[in-house]
């Protein structure tokens, strides 16, 4: 086996590995390396976040605009506080926007649906980095629904 042939095969081997890496980056894990870009944070208080997790999606009309980056419990009010990290591309949500915790499909994972509010010309501003979204709807917890249903049945 002469030297040139060894070099050729090692070169092919490394090229194959790089090609595989590109497939993994582009096709398997989409927008992996580059595409995070600049983001800003909003906060929202819920009564109950159900099965929401860090890295769950934030969607506006089905389009993913960001991800949840932090979930903590407010020490005074004992309510969960969720940090929404949203891409800078979408930085003009009115202050009257509302968020609700939704489920994709019957058994799917939970995500946050952001419903942009109406913007009146002067009266309401735009959500800035660090703002709290006031209008929130909690997650539907299946056990609570069943409990309510049974309770109302037993009253009849």
């Amino acid at each position: 086996m002469n030297n040139r042939k060894v070099e050729l095969f090692v070169g092919l081997f490394v090229a194959l590995a790089i090609a595989s890496m590109l497939v993994l980056a582009m096709k398997v894990a989409d927008k992996g390396i580059a595409g995070n870009g600049e983001t800003y944070n909003l906060h929202a208080k819920f009564d109950n976040i159900g099965g929401l997790k860090v890295r769950s999606a934030i969607k506006v009309g089905g389009v993913t605009v960001g991800r949840i980056t932090n979930i903590t419990l407010d020490a005074d009010e004992f309510t969960p506080v969720v940090t929404l990290t949203i891409s800078k591309e979408y930085d003009s949500f009115p202050e009257t926007s509302s968020v609700s915790i939704l489920t994709s499909g019957l058994l799917g994972e939970q995500y946050i649906g952001l419903q942009p509010g109406f913007s009146f010309d002067d009266e309401s501003g735009i959500l800035q980095d660090g703002d709290f979204i006031e209008d929130t709807k909690s997650a539907l917890v299946l056990e609570d629904l069943i409990g309510q249903f049974l309770f109302s049945k037993s009253e009849d």
């Binding site: 081997f13 490394v14 590995a17 595989s20 890496m21 497939v23 993994l24």
Partner: peptide, 9 residues
Amino acid sequence: LLAIIFSTV
């Protein structure tokens, strides 16, 4: 490198 190729294939 082999592991990357393995996963992709």
